[in-house]
Design a protein around this nucleic acid. Structure first.
Length: 560
RNA sequence: UGGGGUGUAGGCAAGUGGUAAGCCACCGGUCUUUGGAAUCGGCAUUCGGAGGUUCGAAUCCUCCCACCCCAGCCA
């Protein structure tokens, strides 16, 4: 089984063979600080960073902050935090496109002097009309043939603040009939009397992304500018700028962005969910943002595993969110300490266990990791078990607790159900059992296989907790491909968040800190929320355990 | 009816003229003090379609079809 390389690494191998960049490999991740990073960005970051690592090259972080109206320091901070958490390292190479504003301005004047750029007075609407359509060529701006002197003068006065927003633009003089619309005299500068998060009020003209991006990569000596598919037909424009300027020319390679099932990934839609209150902020654990995944308990290693395995190609894709969850479980299974928590408690009284007696039993912390050691858990006459683990009239193949059945209480004893107590409404309020004193620790060699094993907490020792259960945000796999007139908002999962407030957890959890991740045995992985305190424990369900019993039940249900 | 891309299993994705990897999902067995984990097995006679070249085609050629992106002074 040979390790295969993605098509980008193959291109880099080829460049190294031919000596195109003298064997250098230098990549970058260029986010715009106008929102939070999501799992799709993680794919891009890890791709570029991973390539730099594989080839002994360098990786830069550069903020593409050319639009002061949308960008904020808050986003710069969150992006830096998220990339650090993911594990990509830009060392001392943190840059901002705004660092290059002076250079870009100088280059713009150079293009004007070469007769390759001009100041245009067309309004936004007029410019749209002049641009033509997908099938018809555009027509030249009436301002296209201004003299170099006039252009220089006007451009300097734009910079000096003599004109209001939108009054003029600087445009590249390329070809209004180009079949590639990006080449129809694109805007290089627009007038924006806006405060920039880094340059303040120094500028009232701002370079467009297209005019900034390629040159920024050039300035930084990037060899391979890896970006997503939608920029493929901007590449000829970047080539044009770089050639006109006669500066160092990186190679741009495009790949398909990640789409994840049962969620949305566009910043616009994500922003909409936040602003409309559908979710409780960018780090609501239901969001596909990295900050949400961190809060929910996804380890960065799992995200790296996921990104390393989804592949890189140019084909549109929709990756099943089950794959991400698989890698989360895979990591957590090896690392998360096992504890017992009862989400929906049902009291169980062991009639033949001495009243007032407490035994502290040994419990292993992680069967996958012996070095995780053991802890002591309390056992007593009154305990709580999971309500789901008892059925008065069980279906076939149910081997949990029911009248007359014997089950194992994990790490403790075997118990047999002897009585069911109900309230006036017929609701089961408590169970009575007898325990087998010879089964201490959960094993009696005299008996055959005990199939059912239940988790529990000791009533006198358990501590209360709030537990938040999360499910998919959206009920359909691909909300971008739904019936006419429907959007992702028509497919929000009403059960995406369920808050349980009467949960009971084993006493050791009182000491846990926000961010700690556990396996609540038989229930799933849970992460102490950022707002969890000793007095008010709050856990987020990271992901459930695989549940074959649930599957059997659902199948039976479908048949019936 | 412009330009740029992409089509291999339910979802990703290898494959680069020599007879369809792997992962997830799904199905079944073993094992188990978590119905977890682990483990074993099953899962494309065929690569968007049709022709053609060749001893041999997912790979080369021709035509066709489908889907995605582009008409911001957003990135």
């Amino acid at each position: 089984m040979s390790e295969h390389k993605d098509f980008i690494r193959e291109i880099i191998d080829e460049d190294n063979r031919t000596g195109k960049f003298d064997g250098r490999v230098h990549t970058r991740f260029p986010p715009e600080p106008n929102g939070y990073l999501h799992i799709g960005h993680a794919k891009a970051i890890l791709l570029s960073y991973g390539i730099a690592q594989d080839y002994g090259g360098k990786f830069n972080l550069r903020f593409d902050d050319t639009n002061p109206c949308k960008e904020e320091q808050e986003f710069v901070d969150s992006i830096i935090e998220d990339i650090r958490w993911l594990g990509a390292d830009w060392e001392d190479r943190l840059f901002f496109a705004s660092d290059y504003f002076d250079q870009l301005y100088e280059w713009a004047e150079r293009l004007i002097e070469k007769g390759l750029a001009y100041v245009c007075d067309l309004s936004a609407d007029e410019m749209r009309e002049y641009r033509g359509t997908l099938t018809e060529p555009g027509k030249n701006s009436p301002f296209r043939d201004r003299s170099v002197e006039e252009n220089l003068d006007l451009f300097r006065r734009m910079k000096a603040g003599e004109f209001p927003d939108g009054a003029k633009t600087l445009r590249a003089k390329i070809d209004m009939a180009a079949p590639n619309i990006n080449l129809r005299d694109p805007v290089m500068y627009r007038i924006l009397h806006a405060e920039h998060h880094r340059t303040g009020d120094k500028w009232c003209i701002y370079p467009s992304y297209d005019w900034t991006h390629g040159q920024s990569d050039s300035i930084e000596g990037i060899t391979h500018s890896i970006c997503t598919l939608e920029f493929e037909d901007h590449r000829p424009l970047y080539d044009w700028f770089l050639e006109a300027l006669e500066v160092y020319h990186p190679r741009q390679i495009e790949f398909a962005r990640l789409n994840l099932s049962h969620t949305v990934m566009s910043k616009r839609k994500l922003l909409g969910l936040v602003e409309s209150g559908v979710v409780d902020g960018w780090d609501d654990p239901r969001m596909p943002t990295l900050s949400a995944m961190r809060r929910r308990g996804y380890p960065p290693e799992a995200i790296r595993d996921f990104c390393a395995h989804i592949g890189v190609s140019k084909a549109d894709n929709l990756v099943d969110i089950a794959l991400l969850e698989y890698y989360v479980r895979d990591r957590l299974n090896k690392t998360a300490p096992r504890v017992m928590a009862v989400l929906n408690p049902l009291k169980l009284i062991i009639d033949n266990y001495p009243d007032g007696k407490v035994e502290w039993l040994d419990a292993e912390n992680n069967p996958e990791d012996e070095s995780a050691g053991t802890r002591k858990i309390p056992f007593s006459r009154e305990i709580y078990i999971e309500r789901d683990d008892f059925m008065e009239n069980p279906p076939k193949k149910f081997f949990r607790l029911y009248p007359g059945n014997e089950v194992r209480l994990k790490h403790a004893y075997y118990v047999t159900c002897t009585d069911v107590v109900k309230d006036a409404a017929g609701e089961i309020v408590e169970l009575h059992c007898e325990y087998d004193p010879k089964s201490r620790g959960g094993w009696n060699p005299e008996k055959g296989t005990i199939k059912g094993t239940l988790h529990f907490v000791s009533a006198a020792h358990a501590i209360p907790a709030e537990i938040r259960l999360y499910e998919k945000l959206i009920t359909v796999a691909d909300p971008s491909n739904t019936r006419k007139g429907k959007s992702h908002l028509d497919y929000l999962n009403p059960n995406s968040l369920k808050i349980l407030t009467n949960c009971l957890v084993e006493p050791g959890l009182a000491e846990c800190s926000p961010g700690d991740i556990f396996q609540f045995m038989r229930k799933g992985y849970f992460c102490a929320d950022k707002n969890s305190t000793k007095d008010r424990l709050v856990f987020n369900r990271t992901v459930t355990l695989r549940d074959t019993w649930k599957k059997i039940r659902e199948k039976a249900g479908n048949r019936g």
